[in-house]
C-alpha cells in the first residue's frame, strides 16, 4: 500500500472511511503516515477550542418572545403605514436626491473619472446592504401596532447598535469622497439609530411615538429606501471592475 492521502485521513478522522481497516493497519506499520495523522488530529482537535457564547436555560423562551409578535400580526402591519404619507414627498425627494448625485460627478480626464466611478460604486454597494438593514429596523418601529402597555424593542435596539458602527464608517467615507447627499442621509440615520440603540428595551407608547416622530419628521424611512434601491441599481449596472470576484 502507498502512503495514505490526506483526504483518506480526513475521512478516517470523521469515521467515514470505507477502508478504515486497511488504513489502520498501514498506520501501525508506517511512521510517516502516523505522524501525518497525528498532525491532522492535533489541528482538528484544536478547532474545538473555539468558544461558543453560553445561552442559558431560558434562552428558548427569550427567542419565542422575540418572534411571537412576528408570527401572528406581522403581515398586516409591515409596510402598511408609511405608504400613506410617503407618496406626497416622493417626487420632491427623488429629484433632490438625483440632483445631489449628479452635480458632483467629476469632469476630469478619463482615468480619474473611472476611479471616481469605481470608488462611488464600491461605496454605494456597501451602503446599499447597510441601508436595507437599517430600513428594516425603521419600518419595524414605524409600523409597530398601537398598544396600551410597554412594547419590547430588544431586537430593534440590538440591530440599531450593530448598524451604528457601519453607519459611522460609511458616513465618514461618503464625506471624504464628497458624496454629500449620501453623507447627509447617513447623518440623519445615525442620529435615529443612536436614539433607538439607547432606548430602554421596553418602551411606553409615548416613547415609541417620539421615536416614530424622529423617523418620520426627517422622511428618513423614505430616503433610506430610495437611496438603498439606487445603490442596488448601481450594483447591477455594469461598471469597470479590476479583480472582480464573483460569488
Amino acid at each position: 500500500m502507498n502512503h495514505i492521502s490526506e483526504e483518506q485521513l480526513v475521512l478516517l478522522y470523521y469515521g467515514e472511511s470505507t477502508e478504515a481497516a486497511a488504513i489502520d493497519q498501514h498506520l501501525v506499520e508506517c511512521e510517516t503516515c502516523r505522524k501525518e495523522f497525528r498532525a491532522l488530529q492535533l489541528v482538528l482537535n484544536t478547532v474545538d477550542s473555539a468558544p461558543v457564547p453560553e445561552r442559558g436555560a431560558d434562552y428558548g423562551k427569550a427567542v419565542w418572545q422575540r418572534i411571537e409578535k412576528r408570527i401572528g400580526g406581522r403581515k398586516q402591519r409591515r409596510f402598511a403605514q408609511w405608504w400613506i404619507w410617503a407618496p406626497a414627498m416622493a417626487a420632491l425627494l427623488v429629484s433632490a436626491f438625483l440632483a445631489g448625485r449628479l452635480t458632483h460627478k467629476p469632469v476630469g480626464p478619463e482615468v480619474a473619472k473611472n476611479q471616481q466611478q469605481i470608488r462611488e460604486r464600491i461605496l454605494m454597494v456597501a451602503v446599499g446592504d447597510h441601508l436595507e438593514r437599517s430600513q428594516m429596523v425603521l419600518a419595524e418601529l414605524s409600523n409597530a401596532p398601537d398598544h396600551k402597555g410597554k412594547l419590547d424593542i430588544t431586537d430593534e435596539r440590538q440591530m440599531a447598535s450593530e448598524l451604528l458602527d457601519d453607519n459611522r464608517l460609511y458616513r465618514q467615507t461618503a464625506r471624504s469622497t464628497g458624496d454629500t447627499a449620501v453623507a447627509n442621509v447617513l447623518d440623519d440615520l445615525e442620529r435615529v439609530l443612536l436614539e433607538i440603540a439607547h432606548s430602554p428595551t421596553e418602551v411606553s407608547s409615548s416613547q415609541l411615538d417620539d421615536l416614530r416622530q424622529q423617523i418620520e419628521s426627517r422622511g428618513l424611512l423614505f430616503k433610506v429606501r430610495v437611496m438603498g434601491s439606487q445603490a442596488r441599481e448601481q450594483e447591477v449596472a455594469p461598471a469597470p471592475q479590476k479583480n472582480g470576484k464573483k460569488l
Binding site: 476611479q115 470608488r119 464600491i122 456597501a126 446592504d129 471624504s176 479590476k242 479583480n243 470576484k245
Partner: peptide
C-alpha cells in the same frame, strides 16, 4: 460586503 471593502484602488483603501 467585505470583499468590496477590500477591493478597489489604493486610493479607496487609503480612505
Amino acid at each position: 460586503h467585505e470583499d468590496k471593502r477590500e477591493r478597489g484602488s489604493d486610493e479607496e483603501r487609503d480612505i
